[in-house]
């Protein structure tokens, strides 16, 4: 069984001579300045779109200024006491976010636990491998009809869809990370009497953390997709339901505002995740930065 990619091959920090330093400063800063440098292209594209949309007056492609206005009116024109969120924003965001994070967290916890088990036990691996390969191969949205039958429409069905769909990257990456901990690190732990829970939390999991985080990151991306899909089908609340209802009312600017919102959310989740990851894996990226 192989790990989901999105991971850098585990590199060992050998601190011998001849290391090359990358001529870069703080990585966060680099991302920011790089982002700013690339932003002009986005501005240019949006500008072109604005001009073309205004001259063509096509109902399917409202100008960005209209989208932004609708975007603001729909969700962010509320009172300051509500952080400028409108009632509709609370109605749309809350169920979506709850489903997204419950599903993702469930997948993370179960995936981590099963992944550890699988990584530790070659017997479990051999027995479960065909099942896992099959489970991973089933496209998650195909299970929505099944979950609708079991749970009917609603949060339970949506959370189950998300959890089942995003568990695989966490599970397989954890199993791979746990299985491939350096033998010498485990032997060192054995020599110095680090066993059981101490070994799991101080040696195995930190060693596997780069792969685990890569899995969690991929899962988070999947979770957003599955959140929308599960809401497009027979849901009355959430961002996906907003998309459907604006489609049915032929309210194109509202629909576009929803699409933009989802794009922004995707970026936001990724950025927050990257911050958390940097906090936990600074040793890894810094060791690599000095070494490779």
């Amino acid at each position: 069984m192989t790990a989901i990619t999105g991971d850098h091959p585990a590199e060992r920090p050998t601190g011998t001579n001849g290391r090359r330093r990358r001529p870069t400063g703080v990585p966060g800063l680099r991302i920011l300045t790089g982002g700013a440098a690339r932003l002009w292209l986005v501005a240019l594209l949006v500008g072109c779109w604005e001009i073309i949309a205004r001259t063509k007056q096509d109902a399917y492609f409202p100008p960005p200024s209209t989208i932004v206005r609708v975007f603001h009116e729909l969700w962010f024109s509320g009172p300051a006491t509500h952080l400028f969120l409108t009632d509709k924003a609370l109605d749309d965001f809350q169920p979506s976010f709850v489903n997204l994070f419950c599903g993702w967290a469930l997948a993370a916890v179960v995936g981590l636990a099963l992944g550890i088990l699988l990584g530790r036990s070659s017997v479990a691996r051999e027995i479960l491998d065909p099942v896992l390969q099959f489970g991973r191969a089933v496209p998650p949205p195909t299970l929505i009809p099944f979950f609708i039958v079991v749970f009917d429409f609603g949060a339970q069905m949506q959370i189950s869809t998300i959890a089942f769909g995003v568990i695989w990257p966490v599970l397989l990456n954890t199993a791979d990370g746990v299985r491939t901990v350096e033998k010498l690190q485990l032997e060192t732990a054995e020599v110095f009497g680090i066993t059981g829970a101490a070994r799991l939390f101080r040696i195995t999991l930190p060693a596997a953390a780069p792969k685990i985080f890569a899995g969690l990151r991929v899962s988070l991306g999947f979770a957003l997709i599955l959140m929308v899909i599960s809401e497009l089908i027979g849901s009355t609340t959430g961002i996906g339901a907003h998309l459907i209802s604006s489609q049915q009312g032929m309210e194109l600017p509202e629909m576009w505002a929803g699409i933009v919102l989802l794009g922004i959310l995707g970026c936001l989740f990724n950025a927050v995740f990257a911050l958390v990851e940097r906090r936990f894996l600074s040793w890894h990226s810094r060791a690599r930065g000095l070494d490779s």
């Binding site: 010498l184 690190q185 032997e187 060192t188 020599v191 930190p206 060693a207």
Partner: peptide
């Protein structure tokens, strides 16, 4: 044995980078 310590030849990999 629990009263035995080892200094491994491959010292750099026996230290925990985290």
């Amino acid at each position: 044995p629990d009263n035995l310590a080892v200094v491994f030849q491959d010292y750099s990999r026996s230290l925990f980078p985290w």
